[in-house]
Computed example of a mutant assay.
Amino acid sequence: MLKMFRNLLALVLGILLGATVNMALISISPMLIAPPAGVDVTNTESLSLAIDLFEPKHFVMPFLAHALGTLVGSFVAYLIAASYKNRFAYAIGVFFLCGGIAASLMIPAPLWFITLDLWVAYLPMAWLAIWCSQRVQQQN
């Protein structure tokens, strides 16, 4: 019973902490890299109308938010899970990948960004989280 509870906790905390990191980075993004004048980045209609004004620098923070959110969530899931640690870490990666696919259908972005985001920010970050988590556990 304790294993099942820890595994469920791994999923829930992995998703919550990963989403928190993602949203924190998205929230501070306009303060670090100002969007083009007159664009409301919280409004998909505004984004759709002004997407041509965005430069590659405007996509750095969304990519980092997706990648670091997945990395943190998968890392936490791996460390908390009582069994099948890799599977739980990858489950977090798949969860956020599904969110990334949904976002790419709702929020306009250049094809190069969508491709990079979907191929690099999710499952490779879950793999990196597993690798880092194993190193942390070896040191303890």
Rank of each mutant, 00 (worst) to 15 (best):
S133A: 15
A102G: 02
I114C: 02
F88K: 05
A65S: 13
M61F: 13
A37E: 15
Y122Q: 07
L97S: 01
I92L: 07
S48A: 15
N86H: 15
R87P: 03
D117C: 03
A102V: 13
N43G: 08
P108D: 12
D117K: 05
W127Q: 08
C98A: 15
E55Y: 10
P110V: 09
A102K: 12
I51Y: 00
A126H: 10
P62D: 02
P62V: 00
A37R: 11
V60F: 13
A37N: 11
G99Q: 11
V94D: 02
A37V: 10
L64C: 02
S48K: 15
L49Q: 15
H66A: 09
W112V: 03
Y84A: 13
E55I: 03
V39R: 10
P62M: 06
W112S: 07
I51C: 00
L118K: 11
S48H: 15
L79K: 13
P36V: 05
L116F: 13
V72G: 01
P124M: 07
A126Y: 03
L68D: 07
E55K: 14
A121G: 10
M106Y: 12
A89H: 09
A91E: 04
Y122S: 05
L116K: 12
P62K: 10
A50T: 05
L128S: 08
A121M: 04
S104E: 06
A77E: 08
G93E: 07
L64H: 08
I80W: 12
S104L: 00
A129S: 09
Q134K: 15
A129C: 04
V76I: 15
S133Y: 11
V94T: 12
A121H: 04
Y90R: 07
Q137I: 09
F96V: 01
F54L: 02
G93A: 08
N43C: 01
I101W: 07
A81M: 07
Q137E: 15
L68I: 13
A82P: 06
A89C: 07
H58R: 10
M125S: 05
G73D: 07
W112P: 02
L79W: 06
T115W: 14
S133N: 14
L53R: 14
A91Q: 06
T44Q: 11
Q137V: 09
P110K: 14
G100W: 08
M125Y: 13
P36C: 10
L97M: 08
A65F: 02
E45A: 11
P108W: 07
F63G: 00
S133R: 09
H58Q: 05
G69W: 04
R87L: 14
V94A: 12
E45P: 02
A129K: 12
N43F: 04
I130F: 05
F113T: 01
G100S: 11
L53I: 02
L53C: 01
L111P: 03
S46W: 03
Q137S: 15
I107F: 00
P108C: 04
P35V: 02
A129V: 00
F75I: 05
A34C: 05
A50P: 05
T70S: 09
W127P: 01
I114F: 04
S74F: 01
A65W: 08
Y78A: 01
A81I: 06
Y78R: 09
I107K: 00
L47Y: 01
A109D: 12
S133K: 09
F59N: 06
G38C: 10
S133V: 06
Q134V: 09
S48F: 10
L49F: 08
L123W: 10
A109H: 10
I130T: 14
M106Q: 14
A129P: 02
Y122M: 04
T42V: 03
M61C: 06
